[in-house]
Design a protein around this nucleic acid. Structure first.
Lengths: 363, 363
DNA sequence: AGGCACAGTCGAAACGTTTCGCCGCCCTTA
DNA sequence: TAAGGGCGGCGAAACGTTTCGACTGTGCCT
């Protein structure tokens, strides 16, 4: 029955408030106490657009402290139209999105950069495809100044709407949507790094476990693989390209499929680390040794990639840097600065122990 | 020079807007178009507190769609005092907070639950001790309805202020702050689970790598260890308790310290998985085999714990469930329901391969 | 002495909502 | 036919800010 009120301002609170909730003090209270106008208080508190005599200013500041004044950012937002908050939209990859090591890295990068730039982050939680329109609504509802989409699927039109509405909007990862600022990684370079390394070790029979093919990254990595195989006249086999959905279980199943194939590769390139970890598990279960029997490579250099056994040879994407660049881009956009539409980051090869010289061809 | 405006509403935009930015349509525009009052539109759109004839309602809804109306949540927030947003305050553990596997688990739990409850998440980024007052200000600035503190350090008084201001506020992890709703785990039970298991395997010389001792979890786990050793009259040694700061490097250094001690334990309990992973690395480097020479246990069952080699014997905390309970608690608090101050979750033992029967005492 | 610039201040509008009090109308019911 | 009660709708206040236009002195220049 008793109603506890946590916020001043609802009509209801006007009716019986007062003891339950010590009404948050507003700029008006300060004004009243000091017998000055609201505007003067605002100027004093912000070093506002107008000058205030030092005497009044000091009194205002002291009164603010006395009364425990905390500015209400919602009100401020309404009039300025700015919120000092950046929205982050994770990819829609079903349950437990935040457990994805890739997202973890990216989010961490964005988080750190946002902190340095004094921006808070608004994390969008309702990502199901069915909620696409809701995402859009949320983006436009005034609580954020700009948005960062992490690895959006191609059907996510939130990016487009945001752009259209002139909400600063940046994506991380390689959906090269027309005109949308993108922080991407040179997938082809990354794959070539791995593939060249494998070839140099002596591999020729190389397979690929692909990611979710509705994502640009997956497509590009697969394409790079195919081109490399073609360009270098490596043996190829239809059964050597398997889809693994970017998650460990997918990698596990894909590897099992690969290993049941009559003709086996000596190395497998995976489109991300998660799948590589699953693939290693599959090998181990079926009695194949990694890397002695089969070399396996990942992509991303997530935090988990060197905890795997054996530690993964993988491609480091500078994801943290990309996150930080994304934040910088949003802020630049907000200040109406020019931002390059496409920033491409260079990957590097990290050789660890999941790869080695191939066995003598038993065939 | 040209000023691009991303948001209607600033005074400035009134001056020259119009083509740069197609002003977002508001409830007023709908009202004008239909020649009805603003209030009627509001009622129609919300199924508001008052009835509206079906005819008018349909016309309003259609007009809203036509004009591409998106409700401005900031304005709504201001009058209702609610934001459908929950704040999340990560622990202050220096750089790369989000890379902590524990936080990842907890955040994921909160994230999933928030999504189901139609709440967005506001992630606080400015956590440095020096910003404590800023955290408080942010919490009170009206953008969130409640806050979830994840493993707050004991000096974080944000929790207290939030509580005092009647902002629904829940903590995950075991800082048992007077009167603050807490989702905690029975640390003692967890440690006993591990220790009993080790003893049953035959271990008696058991060491402990403790976490950050400004955190309740670390204290309780250490205390549980000490008590267990005392109660069971196990041999003890001052050098067998080392501090590892809850991160892998700390665990690594702690283990090196432990191994340089004249009298070696046969098992080491670590206060979390991260430290256990570091400890294993230290062992490997110094030529000790895990578990043959030394058994090592973790705590938390993070996603990384079974990628380690050997896979960690650890204590599973139902962190995801705790996250979801925390969200539920915030929402309950918002509806003025009673919420138990202290909910204790039961941990379970997960035995994997980082533990085994101790070597014959060489001593 | 008149005019001007400027500092310092105030009042009020505006941002986009929600919701209260009020009013007129039509339909009952006595 | 008068009283009463919904129903459907309107106008306005309120939420807490920011900032514009206007006003009043004061000091300086001509």
């Amino acid at each position: 029955m008793a109603e506890i009120l946590y916020n001043k301002g609802t009509r209801a609170s006007k009716r019986f408030d007062e003891d339950k909730r010590s009404m948050a003090t507003s700029i008006k209270d300060i004004a009243k106490k000091l017998n000055v106008s609201v505007s003067t208080v605002s100027y004093a508190l912000n070093g506002g657009p107008r000058r205030v005599s030092t005497e009044v200013r000091d009194r205002v500041i002291e009164a603010a402290k006395d009364l425990g004044y905390r500015p209400n950012r919602v009100a401020k937002s309404m009039v300025t139209g700015k919120s000092r908050t950046i929205g982050v939209v994770p990819p829609e990859i079903g349950e437990d999105v935040l457990l994805s090591p890739y997202l973890q890295l990216a989010l961490n990068g964005v988080f750190n950069a946002a902190g340095k730039a004094n921006q808070d982050l608004m994390l969008f939680t309702r990502l199901a495809e069915s909620h696409h329109d809701e995402i859009v609504t949320t983006i436009l509802d005034g609580r954020i100044d700009g948005a960062i989409f992490i690895a959006p699927s191609r059907t996510n039109h939130g990016v487009l709407v945001a752009k259209e509405m002139h909400i600063p909007c940046v994506t991380i990862s390689n959906s090269q949507i027309e005109g949308v600022i993108t922080m991407s990684v040179a997938n082809r370079t990354g794959m070539n790094l791995v593939l060249n390394y494998l070839v140099k070790l002596g591999h020729r029979r190389i397979a690929h476990i692909a990611g979710r093919l509705d994502m640009q990254d997956a497509i590009e990595r697969l394409q790079a693989y195919s081109d490399f195989v073609g360009d270098n006249r490596l043996p190829s086999d239809d059964g050597w390209v398997v889809k693994g959905q970017f998650h460990p279980d997918g990698g596990y199943r894909a590897m099992k499929e690969l290993l049941s194939h009559p003709s086996l590769p000596t190395a497998v390139t995976c489109a991300n680390d998660d799948m590589a970890i699953g693939a290693i598990r599959a090998c181990r279960e079926l009695g194949f040794r990694v890397p002695e029997d089969i070399s396996i490579t990942g992509f991303d250099m997530t935090t988990t990639s060197d905890l795997a056994t054996p530690a993964l040879t993988t491609v480091r994407q500078p994801i943290a840097e990309m996150g930080s660049a994304a934040v910088a881009a949003v802020l630049a956009l907000l200040e109406d600065k020019e931002v390059p539409v496409h920033t491409v980051f260079q990957p590097t090869l990290v050789t660890r122990s999941s790869t080695c010289i191939p066995k003598k061809e038993s065939k």
